[in-house]
Design a protein around this nucleic acid. Structure first.
Lengths: 239, 239
DNA sequence: CTACTACTTTCGTGATCACAAATACACTCA
DNA sequence: TGAGTGTATTTGTGATCACGAAAGTAGTAG
């Protein structure tokens, strides 16, 4: 039916107590962050509304919200799409991640008590398990949970939304890149972070977080590879 | 007519070429960032639609967008309001500003060429002029322009939206606080920043930006004053 | 004067519709 | 065969309406 490649993303059961708008927003947000919608793919309100089984209205609001957090791009034609990646943009996003996340980590450190430490340890263990099974998507989700749990330990924290905006912008590209790189495996830098947390060593924690971010993107570390994946990325958006 | 205090904010002429949605969004965004809507004030879609002379629909979208950048808060009652400030939140916002903005400044530094330097100097001069006239609102706007011009000199920059989200969250409180403090005057730290830029000294620039942010909020620097303004703030939201 | 209750009003939500702009498509002519 | 052109379709936009939930109001009982 569609000329364009069909869109597929995770559809969760909608809780009756939550508004349709919110459910649509969170569904689409999850799809973008986990790279289920390819960069360059044009999104239409009515098409998404049809897939989700709702009227165009909540979809419109969700798309606008995602555009304000730079997860989507509204072009001059009023077409909505997942933005394409460039080498410089990729660099800026990674650098911003390191600046923001190491800052958030060090400010969360004083609030890490024993139960929170236990939660982090459990997530670390689950990541190890998922890594042995080679379940890339699960590793990704758990990795997000680990970082989120760390930063949100600070009850007054306000940077999590900013960090998630960066994750949203990196998600589609990282997903596409890792899809073309089967042998890609993640080295676990969380052990260093855990040790720094236990020692209440803010500086060591910042270094560990930065190392973790750097390694998480190491598989595109060489400029040639980065360029290669960006072209793959641009090609994927064409059909 | 209204029991609540009337809402007043800057209404710009709407350009025909721009969509109503966008105009409404930018109007409300400007109002929040410059503290024209007090914290705690409940906003209703229909009321704003009446003031702006549009249907409720574009207002709905704008409010949702502003909520996703944490400029507004949608409570469980589905009521929309400007969030109240707390002492810890204020600290976190300022710390985040320093981390993000000093980072953005140093990454923009290599892109500052001679015409851009000239623009910055001109803005600096205008700020000085506005300071002599004691025009607080104008100082604020020009100060934003100065920082924005610096950070966006980097053509690949992606942190400006994140930084503006922080400005949006600080805007209403800072405006309210400075309104209750007539003798408040800003010490100009931009000279140090300009020198650092001319010398291409990234570290000095970061220090100057941090100092500028710190001084910009110095008038609530003591915990007692901060607490005092937060209570003023909470009171203002009640009527 | 205060606390509870029934009623009225107002609110946000979400679907539908009209309209203009943008796109896709088929057709024509070089 | 390929570029240009007209029409038909699809798109986003924005207004309106119906509905259930929340808030405000008035009246009553203690």
């Amino acid at each position: 039916m569609d000329k364009k490649s069909p869109i597929k993303f995770t559809l969760t059961e909608r809780d009756e107590s939550v508004t349709i708008s919110k459910w649509v927003y969170e569904t689409l947000r999850h799809a973008v962050m986990n790279g289920q919608i390819l960069p360059g793919r044009a999104l239409t309100i009515r098409e998404l509304a049809g897939i989700l089984g709702v009227s165009p209205m909540p979809v419109r609001e969700a798309l606008r919200q995602l555009a304000t957090e730079n997860a989507l791009e509204i072009k001059d034609n009023r077409r909505v799409m997942v933005p394409n990646m460039t080498a410089m943009k990729f660099t800026e996003l990674c650098e911003a991640r390191m600046a923001l996340e190491s800052h958030a980590a060090s400010r969360a450190l004083p609030y890490i008590d024993s139960p929170k430490l236990k939660t982090l340890r459990e997530l670390d263990r689950l990541i190890d398990a998922a890594q042995e099974e080679g379940d890339l998507e699960r590793i990704n989700l758990l990795n997000q949970d680990f970082h989120r749990a760390l930063y949100t330990a600070n009850p007054h924290q306000i940077s999590m939304p900013l960090i998630e905006s960066l994750w949203l912008q990196l998600g589609p590209f990282l997903s596409l890149a890792s899809r073309h790189l089967k042998e890609h495996y993640v080295i676990d830098r969380h052990d260093e972070a855990m040790k720094a947390i236990e020692n209440k060593d803010a500086l060591a924690l910042q270094l560990a977080i930065n190392a973790d971010i750097r390694e998480g993107i190491a598989f595109v570390s060489t400029p040639e590879r980065l360029h290669h994946f960006i072209e793959e990325c641009a090609y994927a958006g064409r059909n």
